Amino acid sequence: MAAFAASSAYAVQPDEIMSDPAKESRARDLSRELRCMVCQNQSIDDSDAPLARDLRLLVRERIAAGDSDAQVIDFLVARYGEFVLLKPRLEPHTLLLWLLPPLALVGGGIALWVHGRRRSRLAAAKDQSTFKLTAEEEARLERLIAAEPSPDKPG
């Protein structure tokens, strides 16, 4: 039980918590979407960095002023850029960021498919060339078979 309680403890300090539980819930939800500029792969909700604390307080200040969630996010993006968002928005200038992973996955799949087909064709060609006898080899084989005594004839 103590481990569960410790895992849900975030970097939010008691003096940051808003008195209205609904507004505090909004602030926590927004804090989970925003990147700590110091830690970079941590939300400001999880970070103990002083800048993360400042951003948490700024989020709560904007909520207390009556801003909607979108207005708070827009304000922070205008101030710090798209990098402040842990999950970037899907916009024309972030399209490559969103499309590159699926395109790389599809491209890798196509490359594996082409490589597999090429290998199977080469293996088939190698098998055919290995078992194909020349006319001279076939004639020699016929002579050997004809010269060999038959198992049903004693000889």
Rank of each mutant, 00 (worst) to 15 (best):
R79F: 12
P149N: 06
A139S: 13
S43K: 00
S31R: 02
F75E: 09
V84E: 03
S129F: 00
W113F: 14
E33D: 01
V12E: 08
S31V: 02
V59M: 04
F4R: 14
V12L: 08
L76R: 04
D15F: 10
D15A: 10
A22N: 09
L57T: 07
S47F: 00
G81S: 07
N41V: 02
H93E: 15
L90I: 14
W98L: 09
F83A: 08
A111D: 02
K87N: 09
D67C: 11
R35D: 03
W113G: 03
T94L: 10
L76F: 10
L86K: 14
P154Q: 13
S31I: 03
A11G: 15
K87L: 08
D54T: 08
L141W: 05
R117W: 08
I63Y: 01
H115G: 10
Q42L: 04
D152T: 14
P14F: 08
Q71P: 01
D20E: 08
P88N: 02
L30S: 03
E138F: 13
K132V: 03
E148V: 02
A49D: 13
M37L: 15
A78I: 09
A6M: 15
D45P: 00
P101F: 03
A27G: 07
A139T: 11
K87H: 08
L112S: 01
R143G: 12
L86D: 05
L144C: 15
P14T: 11
S31G: 10
A70K: 11
H93A: 13
S19L: 09
V12G: 02
M18F: 08
S150C: 11
L30T: 00
R26A: 09
W98G: 06
P149R: 07
A70D: 13
H93V: 13
P151F: 11
A5H: 12
L112N: 04
Q71D: 12
D48R: 10
G108W: 05
A104Q: 11
R89T: 07
M18A: 10
L55F: 07
L122N: 09
I110L: 14
D69Q: 06
I145W: 09
Y80V: 05
D46Y: 00
A3N: 11
R143Q: 15
L57V: 05
I110R: 00
A22F: 08
A65S: 12
E136F: 06
L86P: 10
S43T: 00
R119I: 03
S129M: 04
L133Y: 12
L30I: 04
G107Y: 06
A6L: 15
D152L: 15
R119S: 02
L76Y: 09
D45H: 12
L96Y: 15
R89Y: 04
L30Y: 02
S7H: 14
